[in-house]
Simulated scan of single mutants.
Amino acid sequence: MAPLGDNTNIAEEVMVAEAEKRPVSTIVIIIAMQTEALPLVAKFQLTEDLDSVFPKGVPWVRYHGLYKDLHINIIWPGKDGVLGVDSVGTISASLVTYASIQALQPDLIINAGTAGGFKAKGASIGDVFLACNVAFHDRRIPIPVFDQYGICAKQTFPTPNLLKEVQLKVGKLSTGDSLDMSPHDEAAIIANDATVKDMEGAAVAYVADLLSVPAIFIKAVTDIVDGDKPTAEEFLQNLVAVTAALDQSVTQIVDFISGKSISEL
């Protein structure tokens, strides 16, 4: 007779295998900025959840509805209660990802957003990338093993059929909590072999991996980090136009997912 622990592991593996064969039903889309979220809210004809599934007092916003055969949830971390700006960055991203998984039990997470790109790695303004790997570049812990924990490099969930259909660019994503890039960050980003950098992706990946939910990462380039224009200026200049490209790609991805199982992506 097999030990109880072995039977439990086998049962979990069977459940995961069965889940991967069922058509995707519920998707959570994590988006950091309202400007990025609202066009998709309109596209999918979602409504804001006024009876929030989230804890009382948090600014997090859920838009939800049925699109084709999919239950779509767009989660936006909302505005900072004091300063009134979008709640960007890894802390908000990890919190809303955890809370969304607990409350909504999604089959798939999509982290969609804008990002800086590196022309040295082939990125141009308006390019949309599907991240093949994610890592942090600003969690510096120069102690053996802790250093790798800080970087937290992960390969993302593979979606070969989706990639073939939608024909996005592919690149590695590096995440940190600063819009600009210090010399320390630059060295870490180069070490991560990143094509794009953002402020949320690796945090979403960490939580999704922790709770065993497949996640994909779609990033559209608003600014060229190794270019000759100030990052903040270029980001604001291109945000609206690049968001349109991002939203088009996300729509194509959701259309592709409709009716398919996780294993078919």
Rank of each mutant, 00 (worst) to 15 (best):
1 M>N: 07
4 L>E: 13
6 D>T: 14
6 D>C: 07
6 D>I: 11
8 T>L: 10
9 N>K: 15
9 N>A: 12
10 I>L: 10
12 E>G: 11
12 E>T: 13
12 E>N: 09
15 M>V: 06
20 E>I: 01
24 V>R: 02
24 V>P: 05
24 V>N: 01
24 V>I: 12
26 T>G: 02
28 V>E: 00
31 I>L: 08
32 A>C: 01
35 T>D: 08
36 E>N: 08
36 E>M: 05
36 E>R: 07
36 E>V: 04
40 L>E: 01
42 A>M: 09
42 A>H: 14
43 K>F: 12
45 Q>M: 12
48 E>A: 03
49 D>V: 04
49 D>W: 01
51 D>C: 08
53 V>S: 15
53 V>C: 14
55 P>C: 01
56 K>P: 00
58 V>F: 11
58 V>C: 08
59 P>L: 04
60 W>I: 14
60 W>R: 06
61 V>C: 04
64 H>V: 10
66 L>D: 14
66 L>R: 14
68 K>D: 02
69 D>S: 15
70 L>S: 05
71 H>R: 13
71 H>G: 13
73 N>T: 04
75 I>N: 02
76 W>Y: 13
78 G>F: 00
82 V>G: 00
83 L>G: 00
86 D>F: 00
91 I>F: 05
91 I>V: 10
93 A>H: 03
94 S>D: 02
96 V>R: 06
99 A>H: 15
101 I>C: 10
101 I>N: 12
105 Q>M: 13
108 L>C: 05
109 I>Q: 01
113 G>H: 00
113 G>I: 00
115 A>G: 05
116 G>I: 13
118 F>S: 06
118 F>A: 06
122 G>S: 02
122 G>A: 03
126 G>R: 03
128 V>K: 12
133 N>D: 15
135 A>S: 15
136 F>W: 03
138 D>G: 09
138 D>H: 08
140 R>K: 12
144 P>F: 07
145 V>M: 13
147 D>V: 15
147 D>E: 14
148 Q>Y: 12
148 Q>K: 10
149 Y>G: 00
152 C>R: 10
152 C>K: 04
157 F>D: 05
157 F>G: 03
157 F>H: 07
158 P>T: 10
160 P>W: 06
163 L>W: 14
164 K>S: 14
165 E>S: 15
166 V>M: 10
167 Q>K: 12
169 K>A: 15
170 V>M: 14
173 L>S: 11
173 L>E: 15
173 L>A: 13
174 S>N: 13
175 T>K: 06
176 G>I: 10
179 L>F: 10
181 M>S: 12
186 E>Y: 11
187 A>G: 00
190 I>N: 13
190 I>A: 11
191 A>W: 07
191 A>D: 11
191 A>C: 06
192 N>G: 11
192 N>Y: 15
194 A>M: 12
197 K>F: 01
198 D>L: 06
201 G>P: 07
203 A>F: 04
204 V>T: 05
204 V>D: 05
204 V>I: 11
207 V>L: 04
209 D>E: 07
216 I>N: 09
217 F>M: 07
217 F>A: 07
218 I>F: 10
219 K>N: 11
220 A>C: 06
220 A>E: 04
223 D>Q: 06
223 D>T: 03
224 I>C: 05
226 D>T: 03
227 G>M: 01
227 G>Q: 08
237 Q>M: 08
240 V>Q: 12
248 Q>I: 06
250 V>H: 03
252 Q>V: 11
255 D>I: 05
256 F>C: 09
262 I>T: 06
265 L>T: 09
